[in-house]
Design a protein around this nucleic acid. Structure first.
Lengths: 236, 236
DNA sequence: GTGCGTTTTTGCGCTATCGCAAACTGCCTG
DNA sequence: CAGGCAGTTTGCGATAGCGCAAAAACGCAC
């Protein structure tokens, strides 16, 4: 079992610079678990007892306001870590993690983290990189929310999803997990209604094909153009 | 000179867990520089040759879009680090840093970072914490931009600034560096016009007193109420 | 003290987007 | 195969906030 895992995860950025023997040791400290579709993995505010490496499936990390509104912080794809609260010095999860598809994850107890990074400093360095990357993505998202209109933000969001978790089709790219208009609204700071209108419009132009929790980008190139177009509609 | 620095910085979170002798060694690798008000410290996109610890003054980190619009990523207060591009694996600065007030910073060459964190793992851990905290703040900001209206976002922004860099007055809190309506607009994703209108409104209610690049919160408590009030205006 | 550039204020029309409501569709369950 | 539910579509006001424009206020430099 562990042997199998090694070949699957050895190439991940998280483990870059880690020797196979060390990796073996690291993996021995983990257990793995299966999360059926729509299972909560952890809840915002709960004690951060574990951190995770997603092997299969897709996980949505979402943050909820006191008044109950939600935003999607990110979608986790296989090979990515999540629930790293302790690495960043938090004792409680700042968001809720939900398996949006049948998923499998490796799980380490939070308590193992200090020892792991002491023994394998590369782990800390790699984690720093990914946290840093997420920080920059956050800033990009803030920039987009501040300067672009909804249609452009939705375009960007879909392109990112396609890039991260797109399945190439004969003609187009399909987003490889169930995702609703509501989800996209929560990624872009708008309402499901507006997302629905936008997708309907795109569909009638042949840019996308979509249905219940399913989106296929039929013409990614033209969506890129949309994403970058200045508000007044000029192409320059 | 170095002796003087030690007493000033020893208690900073960045150096927590570092022994005085080690701190001395770390500080010996740094030089310090003075940046007069409105001086650029580094430009977005430039080669990340240094990282910084602000000793005095205030620095604004801002990100610019291809089309020239700007957002303020954050304001740096004394004791905080900035320009940590390399720590998060970037070779170029993702934002522009500008001294908004006469400022002094310690400067390390980026090339010293790998050696420093190898010799002093606590440095890496502490940096991880602050990057993690910034990530969470980013997410909070995204949440606010997605769910709150402009007035509430401005309220939150001012409260944060007051908290980070507020100078207590006999009656109220003054934000301790020059900041324009435009700056606040760029922190909250709106326009200077709207910020101006909001502040004018607040001023007439005695909540704030403000002028050219200057803001005093006269009634922080009521501003907190504003920040948390639900969109329909009910207090519950 | 005067002049100038920057910042702020304010008015006014416009529109992107929301909010609500209602109808529709497709899927899963039994 | 019928029923029901979750997700989606669409219409129709309502409006928060933008964009433009012009005037006013402030502070600095000479």
């Amino acid at each position: 079992m562990a042997k199998l895992d090694i070949s699957l995860v050895a190439h991940l950025p998280l483990f870059s610079g880690i020797k196979p023997d060390d990796l073996d040791e690291i993996l021995r400290e983990a257990r793995s678990a299966r999360y059926p579709r729509n299972t909560a993995i952890f809840e915002q505010g709960a004690d951060a007892q574990s951190f995770f490496l997603l092997l299969h499936g897709h996980v949505r990390a979402a943050k909820t306001t006191p008044t109950g509104e939600q935003i999607v912080v990110r979608y986790v794809a296989p090979g990515e870590t999540f629930g790293l609260a302790m690495a960043i010095g938090a004792t409680h999860y700042p968001a809720t993690a939900l398996a949006v598809d049948d998923s499998v994850a490796l799980i380490w107890p939070t308590s193992a983290w200090p020892r792991l990074i002491e023994r394998f400093p590369a782990l800390a360095a790699n984690t720093m990189q990914t946290v840093g990357k997420r920080l920059q993505e956050s800033h990009t998202r803030i920039l987009e929310m501040s300067t672009q209109q909804v249609e452009q933000r939705v375009a960007h969001a879909l392109l990112r999803l396609a890039n991260q978790s797109g399945k190439k089709l004969d003609h187009g790219i399909e987003i490889d997990f169930p995702i609703s208009r509501q989800d996209i609204a929560q990624m872009t700071g708008t309402t499901l209604h507006t997302v629905s209108r936008i997708l309907s419009g795109w569909e009638s132009q042949g840019l996308v094909e979509s249905g219940r929790q399913r989106i296929i980008l039929r013409d990614p190139h033209r969506i890129v153009v949309l994403a970058e177009r200045s508000p007044d509609g000029s192409t320059s």
